[in-house]
Design a protein around this nucleic acid. Structure first.
Length: 644
DNA sequence: TCAAGCGTAAACAGTT
DNA sequence: CAACTGTTTACGCTTG
């Protein structure tokens, strides 16, 4: 009855690659529900973010490398082709490259999936250092690649014009097809190697994969290419050469380099990745034999022309992506520069680099700040900054205790602001929110206009706000009921229609000091993270928009409940401050009166429905009319359409 | 080591 | 009668 079917970008859990099933910790299957959740407590959010960003960049970089290689190959083919053939129009627009895409798709890791995979990272500071160095190197390489691609593209265009005058040779077509078949075989091999490497990464603790991780709405890395294509290109380039890389355990992009931090010379990484190609496009000099081969067997025809065009498009898309990525990276670096003094001036989509490595990484970054152009929905953002911030107290409600498992260990809490900032993320990604059931239930109730919800409405809120709760309904619904009954802060109110649940703020506030300890640094971090709430939300919106992700709502637009949630998170911070810092003002005008006056606990002293109505209205707001509530399903309706 | 908090599972009873 | 709702207990895990 309560199983909601989301017509939006609902994630299909089982689309996750089987390769990672055994790596998942939070399994979607009931059999593994008893397992603990150490993920939350083993790593910091910053670590996850850093690696996540690195992964995306590495993926893009790899794709660029592949594209370059293909360009070079294409160039080889076209260089040997003459201008003799008559001009022909393309009658075979069918692309050659994507032929094998379909069979590659199941195990392709899209950037989004990569993010999901990487959102639960275990990284040591040393590893983070290395990764950051890699990131720096990648940025430099991307710049070099961009220049290179532009040159290549110009050449390609010239050659394409020439090629249009070339004739069609059936024999060459067959050979091309044969070559592509061989290519696909190589790709399969590389696919296996890639899997092995991912496994090895996982074993090393570099990768941990969320259980039952749903496939996020697949978003093309670029407009013209699907991720599978990029992945295929990556495999092609990695399989095309350097068998020593492929056979080893360290051939992955994550191991690209730790040495090429220099910004001057061509990086070592690029040489490793493309031993046949130099960054200045002098490929033909290095591969005379291959060129001859190509000369003899690959003349121009419609297919190759189409291929060439496809490659041009690929390059263009990659260039676009590269530019965006560069902008993002530069913005990140700039943000790292300024955030200590101007935490609010540089809205960033991601806080990807930990403050630990800030000085080092930022020192080599371009100071130019560019508009953030996030391309993917991101994992929870948890800025850890020390910048000053002003918490604007609102009269809104709070989310409440933070799940300690997630954050306490490293004193990098998932602040309440985080959930507000990452609402879209939690809505779309099947990631367990780092909040207790009690907090979430309370939030659901307080977000309602009447500050009361039926059990079913609470269910709907969960499923609507968190993709994670769209699965295992029996489990978490049981937990919700359990929490409702167990905690005194939840008060059941008999209604005409039935029963609704309200929140006893007094009781709830009693719990918080236990959750948020008086660690000053912790509170400070929470304050700072709050400072980023707004820009981060904007960044998330931009991210969603750019990737055509269904943008339900955000804290600053659309569904008001999200704004409520965002405000609630700030309130949560205030609440924490109240408990930990006596100097902090008790500036919660909307809440304090209720705290003082709240009298009744149905659970402790069951009352007759008639009796319960009156005093409990303190919690359920003064203008509450039980009859009015019956038809008040408001936001839940779209979700409930498919309910059983 | 212990207690507290939390999540999960499950049994049970009452209600719809 | 089935499903839902609500309560309660038990257990394991994490954390301080």
């Amino acid at each position: 009855m309560f199983q909601c079917v989301f017509s939006s970008s609902v994630l299909q859990p089982h689309r996750t690659s089987c390769l990672f099933k055994h790596l998942f910790y939070h399994s979607a299957t009931p059999a593994s529900q008893k397992q603990p959740e150490p993920i939350y407590s083993k790593k910091t959010e910053i670590q996850r973010q850093t690696v996540r960003a690195l992964s995306v960049k590495l993926f893009i970089f790899s794709a660029l490398q592949v594209a370059r290689q293909l360009l070079l190959q294409q160039q080889q083919q076209q260089q040997v082709s003459g201008l003799k053939s008559p001009k022909r129009n393309d009658k075979q627009p069918a692309l050659q490259v994507p032929v094998s895409v379909a069979m590659m798709t199941p195990q392709v890791i899209t950037p989004q999936q990569m993010q999901q995979i990487l959102q639960q990272q275990v990284l040591s500071p040393q590893q983070l250092q290395v990764l950051l160095q890699q990131q720096q190197a990648l940025m430099l390489q991307q710049q070099q690649l961009q220049e290179f691609y532009k040159k290549q593209q110009e050449q390609l265009q010239l050659q394409l014009l020439q090629q249009q005058h070339a004739g069609k040779q059936p024999k060459e077509q067959q050979q091309v097809a044969t070559q592509q078949l061989a290519f696909q075989q190589q790709l399969l091999q590389m696919q296996q190697l890639q899997q092995q490497h991912l496994l090895s990464l996982q074993r090393q603790g570099l990768l941990t994969i969320q259980p039952g991780q749903p496939a996020l709405p697949l978003q093309p890395l670029t407009q013209g290419m699907i991720p599978a294509e990029l992945q295929q290109l990556w495999k092609e380039v990695t399989s095309a050469h350097t068998p020593e890389e492929a056979t080893g355990n360290n051939h992955s992009s994550l191991d690209l380099t730790t040495t090429c931090v220099s910004s001057s010379a061509p990086s070592k990484t690029s040489l490793i990745m493309n031993p046949h190609a130099s960054t200045n496009g002098q490929l033909s000099v290095h591969t005379p034999k291959r060129e001859r081969h190509l000369n003899s067997e690959h003349a121009l025809d419609d297919r190759s022309t189409a291929q060439c065009r496809v490659q041009m498009q690929v390059v263009q898309q990659l260039e676009l992506q590269l530019a965006k990525d560069k902008e993002r990276l530069q913005a990140m670096m700039t943000h790292l520069h300024v955030k200590s003094t101007e935490p609010k001036t540089a809205p960033q989509p991601l806080n990807l680099v930990s403050s630990v490595t800030l000085s080092k990484s930022a020192s080599e970054a371009s100071p130019q700040s560019l508009p953030h152009t996030p391309t993917t929905p991101t994992a929870p953002i948890t800025p850890v900054t020390q910048g000053p911030s002003v918490i604007t107290t609102t009269s809104m409600h709070t989310v409440g205790p933070i799940r300690r498992r997630y954050s306490d260990k490293y004193n990098v809490p998932i602040s309440s602001a985080d959930i507000a900032q990452n609402q879209e993320f939690y809505k779309n990604a099947e990631v367990r929110p780092p909040f207790t059931y009690a907090s979430l239930i309370r939030q659901a109730i307080l977000e309602s206009p009447e500050k009361q919800l039926t059990l079913n409405e609470i269910y709907n809120w969960f499923t609507r706000m968190f993709a994670y709760f769209r699965r295992n309904a029996a489990t978490w619904k049981n937990a919700v009921r359990h929490n409702l009954s167990l905690h005194k802060c939840f008060v059941r109110v008999e209604n005409v229609k039935g029963a609704v649940w309200t929140v006893d703020e007094v009781e709830f506030q009693k719990r918080r000091p236990q959750k948020i300890s008086g660690n000053p640094s912790l509170i400070k971090n929470m304050q700072s993270s709050h400072a980023y709430c707004t820009p981060l939300n904007a960044a998330l919106q931009a991210s969603m928009a750019e990737n055509s992700i269904p943008l339900y709502t955000t804290a600053s637009m659309g569904n008001p409940s999200l704004g409520t949630l965002a405000s609630a998170m700030r309130e949560e911070l205030n609440g924490a401050m109240e408990h930990t810092n006596s100097n902090e003002s008790d500036s919660s005008p909307g809440r304090s009166p209720l705290q003082a006056a709240h009298p009744v606990h149905v659970k402790e002293e069951p009352l007759d429905p008639e009796e319960a109505e009156g005093p409990l209205s303190l919690v359920t707001t003064a203008n509450h009319s039980p009859d009015f509530d019956q038809d008040r399903d408001y936001e839940d309706e779209p979700v409930n359409e498919d309910m059983e």
